[in-house]
Amino acid sequence: MGRKDLVTYNNILKYICMDLSRVLEDVPTQYKKIIEEIRLRNGSPMNIYFNNKDYFITEGGALTNEYRKGILVDKEHIDETFQLISNYSIYAFEEEIKNGFITLKGGHRVGIGGKVLYSNGEIESIRNISSLNIRIAREKIGVSNKIIRYVTNNQNTIYNTLIISPPQCGKTTILRDLIRNLSNGTYDSNGRGFKIGVIDERSEISGMYNGIPQHNIGLRTDVLDNCNKQDGTMIFLRAMSPDIIAMDEIGSISDVKSIHEILKAGVKVIATVHGDTMEDLLSKRSLGLLIEDRIFKRYIFLNNSRGVGTIADIVEGDGFTSIKELEEVSIWGL
């Protein structure tokens, strides 16, 4: 596990300009394995982020809290890094740049900040890049093994499930692993695998790069990359005949409509949403409808009270009672 994390980190360095990657190379190995984000901002010291804390990096690769000691990022660093990230071909990533991020090989994502240019009321491009946020995707295979029994039922099908969590607590990771488990059919020894359609609006679940999913999402999984949920729903229902449709970060009215469409077609849904508690969800108009209609039968709440990926609660969706039997630990399998 640790070795793989190290390789991942070293692969990322290829996308960072030489001046900065040289410094990042000198970071102590124990940190290399757990760094989640590398942030470059024009005129500010380089920043890394892990375990909910951020650090600057000194010239020699040591971590520090004092920003004065951190290595400064200038415009050239950002431009060069951006060239490397886009493979010297910004024109080839126009659509991605419009969405504000580029997916790298390996499923890592780079968020972009800069001057947004509009044309005809739509974002045309982002110029004068001022910040880059390199998010290192660390696949956690097996994190859903303990919760899969809450999602499946005896009739060889699954419950419509909603995963709720604040940002950076692992909802996409859990969703991805659930998809993998259900798709492979490994959740019990004689279980069959489900056909799963993933609507991957932000290329986060599958980490699609050149048409190849960079994460393990199972044997029976089809992906619509970069596709919005409404269109994705229609495409899947028309001819892909999925058993389950999975989507990330629902919230808008149109998402709710899509979910109704899916249910009408007799297909199950797994989705994630930003939030903390049931009250929090009910307060959102569109989601409130879904919950009151008892559409979801399982709610999985995550937080990071015991580290990223702590299962805070699992609630069944008819009487809204907790059915969790797990202890409150992070299921990141540390």
Partner: peptide
């Protein structure tokens, strides 16, 4: 290659 194919530069 670039304008119509959007081929990445090294490949182009």
């Amino acid at each position: 290659e670039i304008v119509y194919g959007a081929t990445p530069l090294p490949e182009a």
